[in-house]
Nucleic acid binder design. Structure first.
Length: 326
DNA sequence: CTAAGCAA
DNA sequence: TTGCTTAGG
């Protein structure tokens, strides 16, 4: 599939958190939450992340554990939430449904034979961001005064747009799509322990002598989330073909191979639904006490699970407060 | 999912 | 160079 192929084209360098100090990052909220739920939190035990009535609250633990990373490095996160689901082609939708059903069958089988490791792995695959998870995440971010922006469609597209407009410095997501959406600078691995990775849009275009349209065309040839690539075309061949033929239509002609709905897929990347109705408020005053109460009292999370995170948030507040006097 | 190794 | 498989997180 295409993701690794796009990485192959992208100009990516490691950066230090220190180099990012003072900047604003538009975080793809769904991507960030998903990553936290599947890797950090979900991996350990399950019961403590569920309330007595069965509501999942692992997201709250994830938020409390994940935000300090931004604050401690003097990064301002802006969380961008998905709006309406972008409608895919019918076959794509049913393919995904089949995938999901297959995964859920396997999960059931693993449960029956008591294979805990397999259960954990499969659960992370079938994990869904429920309405409750999204709602409580927004509420907690609100209490901590972290800006939240509602995208009309894909959060990542909105984030990329805000970065292109210069309203934020970076897009934060693990997804390579940000590059196709024209996000000038994308940060990856903000949640993991090592240094972040910086993906540079203009440098990527320059390296391969491509226009934005051609980069998107190359991705479509190699395969994206929305289409199968053309067999036999990887990163090298895609770039060569576009240099030779100019655009995807000419390539189709020359190879007598076609991608269904290529014009629509192109549009999803080049001209996605976004809104100007947002404001990025960078000075914040988190109500940590209220956040604690929300997480531990309202949602019954064991204080031990989030205490360290709240402390780090409080400490980083003091720290930035001091910085202003230096 | 990502990296590495191998066949065509 | 691409695509497939396998190991590991």
């Amino acid at each position: 599939m295409g993701n690794a192929d796009i990485r192959e084209l992208a100009v990516i360098e490691e950066v230090s958190f220190a180099a990012l100090s003072g900047s604003v990052v538009a975080v793809d909220a769904h991507n960030w939450l998903y990553r936290y739920l599947t890797t950090t939190v979900k991996w350990t035990n399950d019961a403590i992340y569920t309330t007595a009535d069965g509501t999942e609250v692992a997201n709250l633990v994830g938020v409390v554990q994940g935000l300090p990373k931004f604050f401690e490095h003097d990064l301002t996160p802006v969380f961008v939430f998905d709006g309406a689901v972008v409608d895919l082609k019918d076959e794509e939708v049913s393919e995904r449904r089949r995938e999901r059903e297959r995964a859920e069958e396997k999960l059931e089988a693993a449960r029956e034979r008591g294979d805990d490791i397999a259960v954990a792995r499969l659960e992370s695959r079938t994990q869904r961001l429920t309405d409750t998870i999204l709602r409580t995440t927004r509420e907690l971010l609100g209490l901590l005064d972290v800006p939240v922006i509602e995208a009309p469609a894909e959060g990542e597209a909105q984030a990329a747009y805000m970065a292109r407009e210069g309203d934020v410095d970076y897009v934060g997501t693990e997804d390579y799509d940000a590059l196709l959406l024209g996000a000038p600078l994308t940060l990856r691995q903000l949640t993991s322990s090592g240094d972040p990775e910086l993906m540079d849009f203009q440098a990527t275009l320059a390296r391969h002598d491509l226009t934005w349209e051609q980069l998107v065309d190359a991705a479509i040839l190699m395969g994206t989330d929305f289409n199968e690539g053309i067999s036999g075309i990887g990163p090298k061949t895609a770039v060569k073909l576009l240099a030779e033929h100019g655009d995807i239509w000419a390539v189709f002609e020359a190879r007598d191979a076609y991608v269904d709905g290529a014009d629509r897929i192109r549009e999803l990347f080049l001209d996605p639904a976004v809104t100007d109705e947002y404001s990025v408020e960078t000075d914040s005053s988190p109500d940590v006490a209220a956040a604690r109460e929300f997480v531990c009292d309202r949602w019954e999370v064991d204080p031990g699970e989030v205490e360290r995170g709240f402390e780090r948030i409080e400490d980083s507040l003091v720290q930035t407060g001091l910085d202003q006097w230096e």
